[in-house]
Write a protein that binds this DNA or RNA. Structure first.
Length: 453
RNA sequence: GUGGGUUUAGCUCAGUUGGCAGAGCACGAGGUUGUGGUCCUCGGGGUCGCGGGUUCGAGUCCCGUAAUCCACCCCA
């Protein structure tokens, strides 16, 4: 390896095929977001370091790529988009039409140890619905999230969405067996319960100094969120003790989801609490249903975040979905389209000794025409390519034309050139016809041939 | 930050107790200046991740280091 430079740890090079996959993912996110009435925004790739400390505290700083500029300002590459969004909204809150439905597709950076599904540079689709306290926001976010996964070819059995509500859960816990000052510890435990066996749980209880009555209850939670047959009974037993209004709230939300056809994807899930402190009510996670990948997406309500960033009090809900886990899941399911690099419309091949005629034909095919009266492109140029091989053997060039995916070929050769014609070959039907070797006429005839495909 | 696997051609990988650096695919040229992914021949390509050490001699053994994969910690 003569070149000793490598891409930095946790980053990716996007060669044409990989780039096409990334574009496909981003374009799908964008298309479905727009369809659901969200507007695209973006912000700076780096922000002042303080912006990230406000929300998350110093602990998080060690996972940031931070640096200092020549004016001694501390800056950091964005690890997520939400602080930027909160800053933008807080600054402009008075003048924005409401509700605010925004999405963004930023590249984000985290100085973590890379592993499966987690890199140091990634693309994360962010969706936020602000200035509306109604549960229709929850619904629309889930609707968009699910519709997007379906657009990628995933089906109900491929993923599941676990949801919870921190307000209700807190109410339920404190009215049953958790002292108010221990709610934080309870969340910490619930967040990890699904991954632990009995021994692991005892260790966790000791670490968080659980009183004995908590321990037996959490053991019951562990059964309820497991895949054991007893799970349903355990869940029913737990919820029987909960306040009536909490149980009614869960039922009502389930019924709302069922009304719009999302019932089969979503399930109330005790173990989904999300680590982040700023979530205030509804929270959810999208999990891969068939293997053990990391969460594909997650989010929730953060009604107090905008004021934290100096804006007015404003209800808000949002979620994020990263490209890394998503691509892994799409590959595992075999639903990534095979041909993502766009195939040319027309392939020009030439047996002429001079290459200039090829360039003339390419120019005519590729040129767009502008409609100045209507300020738009009247006719878009064709995607036209030619072979760069040295051979002038048509028999060798045709396979290249076919492999390119082009439906039509233009063949330039001495005999035809002498008669001032070129051949247009339909690569699908294999039929050929001769047309005048005038670049403009030729381009028109190629368009006509493409129409017939 | 911790532990384990891996690193040889553009890609996927062989490489024997330490003895001349290999295959397939891909790429390029020709066989065949004129018609469909075939076939045949030839070719370009490598400091064997990087740096030390042992040895007459290291892709191979030892030490260090980087990247990568997997699992922890963490996870916005």
């Amino acid at each position: 390896m003569k070149n000793t430079f490598q891409a930095p740890k946790g980053t990716r090079d996007f060669m044409p095929e990989a780039m096409a996959v990334r574009r496909y993912i981003e374009e799908t996110w964008r298309r479905v977001s727009v369809r659901h009435g969200f507007l695209e925004v973006d912000g700076p790739t780096f922000e002042s370091l303080e912006l990230y400390k406000v929300k998350s505290g110093d602990e998080i700083v060690s996972q940031l790529f931070s640096f200092r500029d020549r004016g001694d300002r501390d800056l950091a590459l964005r690890p997520e988009f939400t602080p930027t969004l909160a800053r933008m909204v807080a600054a402009q809150a008075q003048g924005l039409p409401r509700p605010i439905k925004w999405f963004s597709i930023p590249r984000c950076y985290r100085a973590e140890q890379p592993q499966k599904g987690r890199l140091r540079e990634f693309v994360q689709w962010n969706v936020d619905f602000l200035a509306d306290p109604s549960p229709r926001c929850e619904q629309e976010c889930l609707m968009l999230c699910i519709e997007t996964l379906r657009e990628f070819g995933l089906q109900a059995g491929d993923f599941r969405i676990g949801w919870n509500n921190r307000d209700w859960l807190t109410q339920a816990l404190t009215s049953t067996f958790v002292a108010p000052e221990r709610v934080g510890d309870a969340y910490f435990i619930l967040d990890r319960l699904a991954k632990l066996d009995a021994a692991g749980r005892r260790e966790l209880y000791a670490q968080r100094q659980c009183p004995p009555q908590e321990q037996s209850q959490f053991d019951l939670f562990a059964v309820a969120i497991s895949s054991e047959p007893a799970a349903q009974d355990a869940l029913a037993q737990i919820m029987d003790a909960w306040p009536q209004e909490v149980r009614d709230g869960i039922k009502a939300f389930e019924s709302r989801l069922a009304d719009i056809g999302l019932g089969e994807y979503c399930r109330f899930d005790l173990s989904v609490v999300r680590g982040l402190a700023y979530y205030t009510g509804f929270v959810f996670e999208v999990l891969d249903a068939k293997s053990h990948n990391r969460a594909m997406a997650g989010g929730g309500r953060y009604d107090r975040l905008i004021e934290t960033f100096g804006g007015p009090g404003m209800p808000a809900i949002g979620f994020g979905m990263g490209d890394v886990v998503l691509e892994i899941v799409l590959r595992e399911r075999g639903v990534l389209p095979r041909q993502l690099l766009s195939a040319p419309d027309v392939f020009v091949l030439s047996a002429l000794p001079d290459e200039q005629p090829v360039q003339q034909v390419l120019m005519a095919l590729r040129r767009s025409t502008w409609d100045s009266a209507n300020q738009r492109i009247a006719q878009a140029g064709l995607h036209a390519v030619a072979s760069y091989k040295a051979t002038r053997n048509i028999g060798k060039l045709l396979p290249e034309a076919v492999a390119s995916g082009a439906k039509v070929a233009v063949i330039l050769a001495p005999e035809e050139q002498a008669r001032r014609v070129a051949k247009i070959k339909n690569l699908v039907t294999r039929s050929e016809r001769e047309v005048p070797l005038d670049a403009t006429t030729l381009a028109a005839q190629v368009r006509a041939e493409l129409q017939s495909c």
